[in-house]
């Protein structure tokens, strides 16, 4: 009678994830996976695994609880080795992002033409670039902007996605449909291309890249979150609350959102890696923090001309991006396996 019913005949559910997830870790460490299941099974009646403690949605405490629940066991003896490596790398990256500028051995911005294009050596572990700047120092300094900007993009996108999807869920069916159609249309532009257009229109700066990426990515995130909310909405406990007379807003706030946030966190953690690569790509095409800055993508672009004579200028930043993207990707996967109730019940 309201649009909150499970509605056969509505648009098809978006596929949340094309490939089933937990296989990676199961394959690489089959025994660990099985043991992990059995620990979790203690005291947990079937059908509720994954819900181990209260989690007030979207509060810092709730976010912390979600993350800690996701990370719990990652350091444990039984965690798959891949997950442990991933988290160690991610933690190292976060540390570098924070203290990088302070431990950089050289000034990352000071051009010293006499030292141009020196190969890796004891003095310059990763060599120097065409302006004679130490590549390692630039990498360490750039880590903060590159990683924090990517995380900021994902956080902002997720917040917008949750808010808009919630508004859609609270609105009459027609409004909901219109909002989702708007997302579809915005998604007709590849995120990379749209972000490039926006960033170009806004002018070159890190801020405009972040804004551009958020504008380009929120429709996709909103659609995914809407799908997650719709799934939760059709669960029996939400229907139980509905028949006791809880309003749409109450359903959303007390039942749907708290039980959807785990999936949303999973989604967000999976997006960080894509954001890193996307931002690097944009920087590579010339939109991003303007030249002297040590953005990793820009460093790859800048070293490209010298690849035949000085491979290190472009190789190390590229490697850094790759490692960061893979580590965040693996971490997202690991968190998903831990948080996503539908994967755990398999």
């Amino acid at each position: 009678m309201t649009s909150l019913t499970r509605n056969p005949g509505a648009e098809p559910e978006p596929a949340l994830e094309p490939e089933p997830g937990p296989e990676r870790s199961r394959l690489l460490e089959p025994a660990a996976e099985a043991e992990r299941e059995s620990i979790d099974a203690e005291f947990v009646p079937a059908g509720t695994r994954g819900y181990r403690r209260v989690n007030e949605w979207l509060t810092p405490a709730g976010l912390g609880a979600g993350i800690s629940r996701g990370l719990r066991g990652l350091f444990g003896r039984r965690a798959p080795i891949v997950d442990r490596i991933a988290i160690v790398i991610v933690l190292a990256l976060v540390v570098v992002a924070i203290i990088g500028p302070f431990i950089a051995p050289y000034d990352p911005y000071l051009a010293q033409p006499v030292d141009a294009l020196l190969p890796p050596s004891a003095a310059h572990w990763m060599g120097t670039d065409d302006a004679g700047r130490d590549v390692l120092s630039r990498l360490l300094t750039g880590a903060g902007t590159t990683l924090l900007a990517a995380i900021a993009v994902v956080v902002l996108t997720t917040v917008i996605g949750v808010v808009v999807a919630s508004i859609a869920a609270l609105s009459p069916r027609a409004v909901d449909t219109v909002i989702m159609r708007v997302c579809d249309i915005a998604m007709a532009l590849p995120a990379m291309v749209l972000a490039l257009g926006i960033a170009a229109a806004l002018g070159p700066s890190l801020g405009s890249v972040v804004v551009a990426m958020v504008i380009a990515m929120w429709p996709g995130t909103t659609r995914l979150v809407r799908g997650i909310l719709r799934v939760t909405m059709s669960s029996a406990y939400v229907e139980s609350a509905r028949v006791t007379g809880v309003s749409k807003a109450g359903l959303l706030a007390r039942h749907v959102l708290p039980n959807s946030m785990d999936s949303v966190y999973v989604q967000a953690s999976m997006e960080i890696s894509g954001a890193i690569v996307l931002m690097a790509g944009l920087a590579y095409l010339g939109v991003g923090a303007p030249p002297p800055s040590a953005d990793w993508g820009a460093m790859v672009a800048q070293g490209r001309e010298y690849i035949t004579t000085a491979w290190w200028v472009t190789t190390f930043p590229g490697l850094a991006i790759t490692i960061a993207a893979i580590a965040f990707g693996l971490l997202g996967d690991a968190i998903r396996v831990r948080l996503d109730p539908s994967l755990r019940r398999r």
């Binding site: 009646p45 079937a46 509720t48 819900y51 029996a236 406990y237 609350a241 039942h255 708290p258 039980n259």
Partner: peptide, 13 residues
Amino acid sequence: FQDPYSSLNPRMT
């Protein structure tokens, strides 16, 4: 409801 395992919100006391 039929299934008491799914008809209680797992996040509520």
